[in-house]
């Protein structure tokens, strides 16, 4: 499999604390090992938990692109949280964008305090669909909670990413990278999370 544009631009977005940086690093390592030139703008937003964060990945066969994707140039959006997905499409989306979204909301402080409303998730997904060429959904947080720890939701999302076959990645590549990157005692759980993500993701029509 090859990338369909050069550069192919990926944004992983969500809320601080969701493992956005690690997910982008794992994905980046998987692609570098295949010979791609990768740039990752590690997080765009505050480093503290609770804020909106995103990572920008540029995948090219030839050039080192800048760590920031320009307006309207996202090819694939991996949204770890639904309204954060919509927030990113607002600036980076275009008719060509494809979106993979974790449907589990994380309420911002203003929603918790009652100063703002969190929209119906189904409405958010419908809007994301309106603004994307293709959309895939799964409740990655729920899958991770079933496994006993929400910390795995980013890995569940990477498994889903593998299943939708938009990027040239596979399970073996994932396994090799996390062997290097993560503690070996978490290997089995991470592989399980990855495979669960592959199983549960579905295209949204």
């Amino acid at each position: 499999m090859f990338i369909s544009r050069d550069p192919f631009n990926v944004i992983i977005g969500g809320v601080g604390g969701q493992g956005n940086v690690l997910a982008s690093q794992i994905l980046g390592e998987m692609l570098v090992s295949q010979g791609y030139v990768i740039t990752i703008g590690e997080t765009y937003g505050a480093s503290q938990r609770g804020g909106a964060v995103m990572s920008h990945l540029r995948i090219s066969t030839k050039d080192q692109f800048s760590p920031l994707i320009p307006e309207g140039q996202c090819d694939l959006l991996i949204a770890l949280e639904p309204v954060e997905g919509l927030r990113i499409l607002d600036h980076y989306g275009s008719p060509r964008v494809m979106t993979l979204v974790n449907t589990r909301p994380i309420h911002p402080m203003d929603v918790i305090s009652g100063n703002a409303e969190y929209p119906e998730v189904s409405k958010v997904i419908a809007k994301i669909k309106e603004l994307s060429r293709r959309v895939w959904t799964l409740n990655a947080t729920e899958v991770a909670l079933e496994m006993g720890d929400p910390i795995f939701s980013n890995i569940v999302m990477l498994g889903a990413l593998c299943a939708i076959e938009v990027l040239p990645i596979n399970q073996q590549g994932f396994e090799l990278v996390i062997k290097d990157l993560l503690p070996s005692r978490t290997m089995d759980e991470n592989m399980k999370a990855f495979n669960r993500g592959r199983e549960v993701v579905q295209e949204f029509y």
Binding site: G17, A46, Q48, G51, V83, P108, D110, P119, K123
Partner: peptide, 10 residues
């Protein structure tokens, strides 16, 4: 649809 997301302590 999008509510603001302010920074917060963990």
């Amino acid at each position: 649809l999008i509510p603001a997301r302010a920074l917060s302590f963990c």
